[in-house]
Design a protein around this nucleic acid. Structure first.
Lengths: 342, 342
DNA sequence: ATGAAAGCGCTAACAG
DNA sequence: CTGTTAGCGCTTTCAT
């Protein structure tokens, strides 16, 4: 096989040309005749030579690393959530296509002592993707260091940071419209109280759909909770005490719906016979629930690819970059938590 | 703040010493007097200088990258499974401690056209962690390239590859013993038919526990399935047609148990009143099922840290490396799918 | 104990 | 169109 690692000079010698010629060919740049180009290519292949990326890194002052970070100081533990799993897979496949590594990064402590800061200082990262949120302090530091970044699944309507977002108001409206179409009249809403902007969008989608279909809305049917069983169990308790009994519950996220279903099951309420449940996200656990959850699909994978694309535009210094890209919402995935009451 | 990037020479000049002295200090090696050392350190700090990792990469011929790979040709899509999520988090935190990047890598096609091979060729990886399995072909290629690797959660008893493993026979025995202790007499077993070695270990654990407690075993109560709803639904069908009715089902993995619970629910069988369910893994969805699943904990996080540790030993060329490290199994996490029948 | 000098393998002016 | 030259920022002999 391969003996010692070959260098660009070895190839140059074998091809009877200079190293620069080889470099030009390697990078597919103009500057050599077609004849020499194909000759050099032949030599490269027959020796299956691959340039050492480390030297390119040094001279180009690039790392070819994209960091994907879950900032635990800025929200939930995003890596724990199947939602971002899909987004990461999307980013991963696009990174492979453009020749970058996708490097995982958790921020658990202060930014100052994070591996992200270290990577920035050491030129060990060319761009970073934040899951869901970025703290202003971190954004400032990165801006100062001229480090491109993008927030994936940003809920801030106008943070001004480059972001990939999704119209959760629209997705919510789709879910609620579906509940209306299937004959539900008293549709409850459980929003996420810990992410304000997200609460607002989903609530607006919910209200919008009700209004559009002329369904009267009842304030006691809208509530909010954090994304954990206890909080959602309490929310269900409040809803069930309402004068108007809900015949359906719309949850702003799959995980919330799953906790809601646990709560309903404990109370002996059958889904969907007594209460229908519908949500937004389509994360893996929603296929594993009993019964499987009807939900609105979100193109999480696409968010990942789009984030990498935006980063590439920034790294390559393109102009006219669209710094806020919205991914269209998906359709209702009809499973078994919604019954037709009409 | 920082003007232009400083180099080791700038620091040397400021400190009135040579670049080599600074290098020695940066790497904490002997060769300078304590006086100059602390003086240089002071200069470094006050300018908050950080060496450029790219130049170290070049001269040391290292990438400081650890790849963590899910080979879709060698098994299931490991990144989809919450099991490996936890292992990855463990690997991530240890990587941070030792100054390596953790780089995600999917193998969807042939190894020859994978980003892993590319990384190996380009000196863009120093060690690789395989999730669950490695194909012999890939192991050969890596060995030839002198690239350290370790298989995390290897099920092969004696593959000879460096690996982190877990005693699933022991974990299974714990689960089954717990079912016995809670008064179950007809305990069914659903093993994973697609990973032979895993099937064997869990089956042995199951049988061992039955024998140890003098419970007669009934062949018609042991079956196997693939990890998807259809296959497990069929397995449940077979079990329910058995002459001896099971009062509990032990599943070799949480995800299998979750599908089993879906199947049982569809058949109107209540858990745990009619049939108890117990499994092994403790992945996130097991907390989200109705009712929450009783299962044996596996220290997935620890598997990740241990994998990185082993890789570091290999990279640093230690001798007397233990190439097969078993992580002790955890305890039964008592949740709500097992009822006391005694 | 310290510094000078020679690269690591590549790219990018600049000449010819 | 092609080759020569000079580095990128660090580590590492080898003199002093």
């Amino acid at each position: 096989m391969q003996k010692e690692r070959m260098t660009i000079h070895d190839i140059a010698k074998l091809a009877g040309v200079s190293a620069s010629a080889v470099s030009i060919v390697l990078n597919d740049r103009p500057g050599v005749s077609d004849a020499t180009r194909s000759h050099i290519k032949k030599i490269i292949r027959s020796n299956n030579y691959t340039p050492n990326l480390n030297s390119r890194k040094l001279i180009l002052n690039k790392s070819f690393n994209i960091f994907i970070v879950a900032d635990h100081r800025a929200g939930e533990g995003a890596f724990d959530d199947m939602f971002y799993n899909s987004a990461i897979m999307g980013a991963l496949s696009r990174c492979g296509e453009v020749g970058y590594n996708l490097v995982l990064c958790d921020i658990l402590q202060e930014y100052a002592s994070s591996t992200l800061k270290q990577a920035v200082d050491q030129h060990n990262v060319d761009g970073v993707i934040f899951l869901q949120n970025i703290r202003a302090e971190v954004a400032e530091e990165l801006t100062r260091a001229a480090m491109p970044f993008v927030v994936l699944d940003s809920h801030k309507q106008k943070s001004g940071y480059p972001c990939i977002c999704c119209d959760y108001a629209d997705a919510s409206a789709k879910a609620v419209s579906y509940l209306i179409k299937t004959g539900h009249k008293q549709i409850a809403f459980i929003g996420n109280s810990s992410v304000h902007e997200f609460y607002i969008s989903t609530f607006n989608g919910y209200m919008g759909a009700l209004e559009k279909h002329g369904i009267p809305c009842c304030p006691s049917l809208a509530t909010s909770a954090e994304v954990n069983f206890e909080s959602i169990n309490q929310a269900i308790g409040r809803l069930l005490k309402s004068e108007i009994k809900p015949d359906a519950i719309f949850c702003a996220a799959d995980l919330m719906a799953i906790f809601a279903m646990q709560s309903l099951a404990m109370r002996g309420i059958s889904i969907p016979e007594q209460i229908s449940v519908c949500a937004v996200d389509n994360i893996l656990p929603s296929q594993l629930s009993v019964p499987p959850l009807t939900t609105v699909d979100i193109a999480k994978n696409r968010m990942g690819t789009e984030a990498v694309d935006m980063l590439m535009d920034m790294i390559e210094g393109k102009n006219d970059i669209n710094f806020r890209r919205c991914i269209p919402t998906g359709e209702v995935l009809v499973r078994n938590t919604v019954i037709n009451r009409s």
